[in-house]
Amino acid sequence: MNLTLKIWRQKDKATPGKFETYDAKDISPDMSFLEMLDVVSERAQANGQEPCAFDHDCREGICGMCSLVINGVPHGPEAATTTCQLHMRKFKDGDNIVIEPWRASAFPVLRDLVVDRSAFDRIQQKGGFVSINTGGTPDGNAIPISKKEADLAMDAASCIGCGACVAACKNASAMLFVGAKVSQYMHLPQGQAERSRRVLAMVEQHDAEGFGACSNLQECEAVCPKEISVRVIAEMNRDYLRAALVGTDA
């Protein structure tokens, strides 16, 4: 198949970027989207153009490194799928494809389609953990955890930290990301000791990073490659209000 790509190119954080058009000829429908970009980049390089930079690593949908807003949708048109797992058979011969980076002031563009997501790391550093050191922990079966709660924790914990929720949100809010982490620990006995402190600190850092507020449009849930539910946002909201108004361990 033959496609026309409009790709965002930007030299660095300080230089404004712009779209450039590339022809993608003879693309196999069995290629992944990133393999298609590999091929286009390789050909551009042969013509003396620097290859387009985009984040990617595991290419099996779990590391959370790949991104790209493809025709207006983070991770492209297929639900519950990261860009690296999106295959070209989802497109039609002759399609125009617009490829943009995640856009958020908290995710500055470093080059082309690569953005800086270290804001997520800093949020995690504020409270996305259980404050225990290595060693001296009780037996794994010492505290029973109901299957239901463990499953709810796991649903939230499956977040890959890709940032698609921020990219899709009209307010560039990271509440789905923060909610997922808060929810994971909320459903586990190990998370209770720091429950209030965690939610307050993580939301505070979320705000400090310049992410927007949640307007409950649920676009994040719709694009999340791991299908994390906005339930986690409601849970975080409840915990936040409880902690802010009556919290005792904060």
């Binding site: 290595t134 922990t137 794994g140 505290i143 109901s146 994971q184 459903h187 586990l188 190990q190």
Partner: peptide
């Protein structure tokens, strides 16, 4: 034990 204490959500049986 360490991972459980960290909040790693391992698969559980109904009994917990």
């Amino acid at each position: 034990d360490q991972c459980v204490a960290q909040g790693v959500p391992f698969a559980r049986e109904y009994g917990g």
